[in-house]
Structure formats: C-alpha cells, structure tokens
C-alpha cells in the first residue's frame, strides 16, 4: 500500500504555464448546471450537494490563482492522479480530444455524463 504525498502539476490552458498545485486553487466539480429560483428542491439539492465523487475519471475546476487568475477545467483520475488534459472553463462539456484520450487510457470508463 502506498501512502505519501502529492503535489499536482497542471498546465494552465490560458497562459501555458505548468503550474504547481500551490499556484492553483481547487474548485471541485466542473460542468455544473446551476439551478436557481424555479427549480425543485431535489434539483437544487443535487446541484448544491450531490456532487460527483468518482473514484476514477473526474472533471474538475481549478483557478490559476497565483498566475493568470483564470479558471480552467481539468480531467484527472482521482485514483491515480493521472491528468488527461486541461481546457478552458468556457465550454459546456469536455473537448472531444480529451474524451478520446481518456477512452484510450481507461477503456472501461462509462463516459462523462
């Protein structure tokens, strides 16, 4: 059984810097759909609390806080810390090339939805 520490290295898709975790702020799940007024209690609860928590491929938000200040998204494996790619936050779903890369690396992966 391994147990040590990590110090993630993620490439900021805006400034191209390979940024160390200390330069970044994590922001949990990516591609969230916001539910505001008019949504049901269930929708609102799911949006606020029932966040994805997979052991495996995960899409998440990071901010290059001590760099360019931009939020970006990362596809990362929570079980191995492998990073499949990073991409700008201004998209509705993960880019196709990253999806392809994940499928190649994780044939059993059920897809991002």
């Amino acid at each position: 059984m391994e147990t040590g520490c990590n110090m993630l290295l993620l490439e900021c898709p805006y400034c191209g810097v390979k940024a160390e975790e200390t330069e970044l702020s994590p922001g949990y799940e990516a591609h969230l759909k916001r539910f505001g007024p008019g949504s049901t209690d269930e929708e609102f609860e799911a949006y606020m609390f029932a966040r994805k928590n997979p052991k495996g491929v995960h899409f998440e938000r990071w901010r290059h806080t001590y760099g360019c200040g931009k939020w970006f998204l990362a596809a990362r494996c929570t079980a191995t810390l492998e990073v499949f790619g990073t991409y700008p936050a201004q998209v509705g779903e993960p880019p196709a090339d990253i999806i392809e890369k994940i499928k190649a690396r994780r044939p059993d992966w059920k897809g991002y939805k």
């Binding site: 391994e2 147990t3 520490c5 990590n6 994590p26 922001g27 995960h58 998440e60 929570t78």
Partner: peptide, 11 residues
C-alpha cells in the same frame, strides 16, 4: 480541496 482517493495529500 480536491477529490482524491490515493491517500496521498498535498505536501
């Protein structure tokens, strides 16, 4: 502040 199943936290 991020999801992690590795038992390895940030140094």
């Amino acid at each position: 502040g991020f999801n992690n199943y590795t038992q390895r936290g940030s140094f």
